[in-house]
């Protein structure tokens, strides 16, 4: 089972992407999408060493909701700062210590930080323990680090690493 269907989530995503790409919901495309979704992970399975496990689905859905709201909020925030002019900005680099250990969770956190208000992730340190984040306008850097850790990092940790035991 595991050898024949190495990545069930990837299979589902690929089938869905195929249906979106052809922009048509018919039995033929459903079958073709399912075949492609099975074939591509099967052929490329050496490239996907890490097996993705979602340990806590409700948190994932909640996280996606927060993410969408924050993307819109972040864009308005940046638009306001740009329109107000460069003289009022207080840019800073902030180091965020990471509690996450898996590659997927770290990259998702970095992407989330880049899309949410006023911050862009700039660099992951060589030992994978700190993420350097550039902020556009911050007075209190400690509060920003605390917000990132509480708002984005702890749900990601719950979804991909610890499951129910902590948080």
């Amino acid at each position: 089972m595991r050898r024949l269907l190495p990545h069930p989530l990837l299979t589902l995503t690929l089938a869905l992407l195929w249906l979106l790409l052809v922009n048509e919901l018919s039995a033929g495309h459903l079958v073709l999408g399912a075949v492609l979704g099975w074939l591509i992970p099967f052929v490329t399975s050496p490239f996907w060493p890490e097996r993705i496990r979602i340990r806590h689905l409700p948190t994932l859905l909640h996280y996606l909701g927060i993410l969408i709201v924050d993307i819109v909020r972040g864009s308005f925030h940046v638009a306001r700062l740009i329109l107000r002019g460069p003289a009022h900005l207080r840019p800073a680099f902030v180091e965020v210590p990471l509690a996450l250990r898996t590659d997927l969770a770290i990259s998702l956190l970095a992407n989330t930080i880049s899309l949410t208000p006023g911050t862009v992730s700039a660099q992951l340190s060589g030992d994978r323990r700190t993420l350097i984040v550039h902020t556009l306008d911050t007075g209190d850097t400690d509060a920003l680090v605390a917000e990132i850790k509480q708002r984005y990092e702890s749900p990601l940790r719950k979804i991909f690493e610890t499951g129910d035991e902590s948080c």
Partner: peptide, 24 residues
């Protein structure tokens, strides 16, 4: 507004914010 930020802000790192968030 994203492109305005790109043209208007003063250093590379602040310019990066406009195109990533507003333009997207």
């Amino acid at each position: 507004i994203g492109s305005l930020g790109l043209a208007r802000l003063r250093d590379f790192y602040t310019r990066l914010h406009g195109p990533t968030k507003a333009t997207t």
